[in-house]
């Protein structure tokens, strides 16, 4: 279970003070597909970065299985991260390594032996549908294929939680559907917690169980997807649903 309580994050520069996250409270149950939706600049990415320890919050805590991960550092942080797979916006693949080696790196640094690495990579490549592309370099792959590699790389370490930042924003509608189908399959197969950050309502409506709407650094609405979508309370939710004019 992921328990985010009173989480806030401020960015301070010389002449700018931004409250990126304001008193965020969220509980994400194990094994659910949770969507966080909001317009750009709402604080979605900051929330994800805080969840993986790339950003330290100004206040509050994130408990995952009774450990406050915002306090972790160095090797403890790396140990925690070995339970989460992250798919970044923009893929962030290693451009000078082929697909196989991109997947091999996280396993190699965990000192997993060769045979096991090989089996795991083969299993995941088959799952995400990248057979025959093992030797290809990211520069020669399409957007959808790169996203598959990024998802495969996140899954190869057997994570308990899968975090995805705008997994479909750069993809066309058909590829989006294929990627969402893949995420659904992954969830059914491994029963892992999936947290998707997005600005697209279709992503939430097609695969998420619960959703939280974030606006201007605040969670304005949260609950079961059907409840929220059938009876939206906030203007932002209505706007995202297309029920209100800009």
């Amino acid at each position: 279970m992921i328990e985010i309580s009173h989480l806030s994050k401020n960015f301070e520069t010389k002449d700018l003070y931004v409250e990126a996250l304001k008193d965020i409270n969220l509980t994400i149950n194990d094994g659910s597909i949770f969507g966080i939706i909001g317009l750009s600049g709402a604080g979605k990415s900051t929330l994800l970065r805080t969840l993986v320890g790339l950003e330290k919050p100004s206040d509050g805590s994130i408990y995952i299985d009774d450990v406050d991960i915002t306090k972790l550092k160095g090797s403890n942080l790396r140990k925690y991260r070995s339970n989460i797979g992250v798919v970044f916006q923009g893929y962030n693949l290693l451009m000078q390594r082929n697909v196989w080696n991109n997947l091999d790196i996280p396993l190699r640094v965990r000192k997993i032996d060769k045979e096991e690495r090989k089996n795991k990579i083969q299993e995941i490549i088959k799952l995400v549908g990248l057979e025959g592309k093992e030797k290809a370099y990211p520069a020669n792959l399409s957007g959808g294929q790169k996203q598959r590699v990024a998802i495969a790389r996140a899954l190869v370490i057997n994570p308990k939680i899968l975090l995805l930042d705008e997994p479909t924003s750069a993809l066309d509608s058909i590829t989006t559907k294929q990627i969402l189908k893949l995420l659904k399959d992954i969830h059914e197969l491994y029963h892992i917690t999936v947290l998707i950050i997005t600005h697209e309502i279709s992503v939430v409506s097609s695969i998420c169980h619960q959703v939280a709407v974030i606006n201007d650094g605040e969670i304005v609405e949260k609950g079961e997807v059907l409840d929220i979508f059938n009876n939206p309370q906030c203007d932002v939710t209505k706007l995202l649903l297309g029920k209100e004019e800009i």
Partner: peptide
């Protein structure tokens, strides 16, 4: 080198030396 690639590598469990 894209900073995102470095952050992704950190999330994949690589230490600074790696």
């Amino acid at each position: 080198i894209d900073k995102g690639v470095i952050e992704a590598s950190q999330c994949l469990g690589l230490n600074n030396f790696q």
